[in-house]
Simulated scan of single mutants.
Amino acid sequence: MTTTAPHTPDQVAEQLAGRILEAGLGAFELLTIGLGDRLGLYRGLAAGPATAPELAARTGVDARYVREWCEQQATAAILDVDDPAAAPDQRRYTLPMGAEAVLLDPDSPANVLPLAGFLESAGRVMPAVERAYRTGGGVPYADYGVHHAQGGFNRAAYTGRLVSEWLPAVPDLEAALRAGGSVAELGCGVGWAAIALARGFPAATVDAFDVDPASVEAARRNAAEAGVADRVRFVVADVTDPALTGDHAGVLAFEMIHDLADPVAALRTARRLTHGPVVVMDENAADEFAVPGGPLDRLFYAASVLHCLPVGRCTEPSAATGTVMRPATLRRYAAEAGFTGVVDLPIADPMFRFYRLEG
């Protein structure tokens, strides 16, 4: 049973109104951050402090719009300004030390800029989401146009931690890759995990599958730019297709099982593709529902309401899992797919849980 401190109706109204106002303000500011990224304004300020006209000249953006954006960013304490009392076009704006890790470095663990892309995406598809809620239907993943934001949000973890921290918890797969083995990845998105594997294991090869053509196209470009396109094969494929077979040292399914209408079929595919371990990484959902939730619980449920559950209900019948896939649910799916064991891997991460499926 959950107990809360008593509140009068007036107190509840005041607190809830204040919370919604603060959330709305944060959403608006996040969109202005996304706009600054799209226009190259943060990149322009990384070259050094600038007045609004100077920044406009550096970036090729209209000077009056740049002035408004700079004033807003300074008001929000995202940019520093040397003299607020100066004439508008004489104020000099600076990107604070440390801000580049958040706004400009895609491989920094602090880079949460892709959240702006998720917010933009939600606005684009909201009528379709509402329709899905009323009819019990779904919203196709491609309609969200969120593949770059999704890839960007996970990129730093894959680039910085997959090879050095996560794979050592699966020593037989790590050894096989060091010896030149192959690994399959289901739901590869724009390819950052596969690319990290190819970089970290120079003798290994990766077969990566995703049903979204735009994601696969982006993954191929990313692999070419990273210089590993000769060892990573990106394929447009439905990972629930029983015709998908192979013989790999292991299979990775990162943050994708909960999005599928038929997660059991995908796990059966994983089982067919390897004689070794299947590693599933998914959101770090608690064992049981509990309220109030922490920040990550709130993030997972918001993502589920707006994206993951509608995507997972595009095909019927659907498991309708949603983002918050609890460990017991994954274990049930694994057993139905024919696995005889599920082991929690000893990888500490606030965002994700890791499972090894065997048998």
Results as ranks from 00 to 15, higher is better:
A149S: 15
V129G: 01
G200E: 03
L177V: 06
D10N: 11
F339W: 12
A128P: 14
A285W: 04
G276M: 05
R271G: 07
E255K: 10
Q73M: 15
L162W: 10
G189R: 03
I20E: 06
V61N: 04
Q150M: 15
G227W: 00
Y158Q: 14
P84M: 07
R326F: 10
M325K: 04
D143T: 09
S215Q: 06
L55Q: 00
A219W: 00
L330A: 05
G338E: 05
R155D: 00
A176N: 03
R161E: 15
Y158H: 13
T75M: 11
P346M: 05
V228Q: 02
V139Q: 01
D349W: 02
R353T: 14
A196G: 08
L119F: 02
A348W: 02
A175L: 05
V278F: 10
T323V: 15
Q90I: 06
L103A: 08
T205K: 08
D207P: 11
G227Q: 08
G250K: 06
A27E: 06
P49W: 01
G181S: 11
G250C: 04
A218Q: 11
A335S: 08
R43I: 00
D89W: 09
R356T: 09
E174H: 12
R161L: 15
H148Q: 14
A175D: 00
M97R: 15
R19W: 12
A249G: 14
L113T: 13
P109C: 09
P213T: 05
L25M: 14
A285V: 15
I20T: 12
L39A: 06
R199D: 13
D259I: 04
F209T: 11
I33C: 06
R155N: 10
T274A: 07
A229T: 10
T240H: 07
L55F: 00
A249I: 05
A286T: 12
W192P: 09
G40N: 04
V129R: 04
E174Y: 05
L296P: 08
D107P: 10
T32N: 11
G117Q: 01
S304R: 02
A116M: 02
A52N: 05
R326M: 12
A184D: 01
C314Q: 09
D107K: 05
G34Q: 03
V129S: 01
L173C: 04
A243F: 06
R199A: 12
P53Q: 03
L115G: 14
V206E: 03
R199Y: 05
L16Q: 10
R356Y: 05
G294T: 07
F352M: 14
H258R: 06
T323L: 08
L252D: 00
V235K: 03
A218I: 07
A74G: 09
L104E: 00
A74K: 01
R199N: 10
I257H: 01
L41F: 04
G24P: 06
V129E: 01
Y355D: 15
T2Q: 10
F300P: 04
D282E: 11
L16N: 10
L244E: 03
R298S: 13
L186N: 00
L16S: 11
G227E: 03
V236I: 13
L162P: 07
A193V: 12
D297W: 13
R124S: 04
P213M: 07
T274D: 01
H307I: 15
T159L: 03
A17D: 13
T329I: 10
G227N: 04
D62G: 12
V112P: 07
F118C: 06
V291A: 09
E225Y: 12
N111S: 07
V183G: 02
R124I: 10
A337P: 11
R91E: 03
A179C: 07
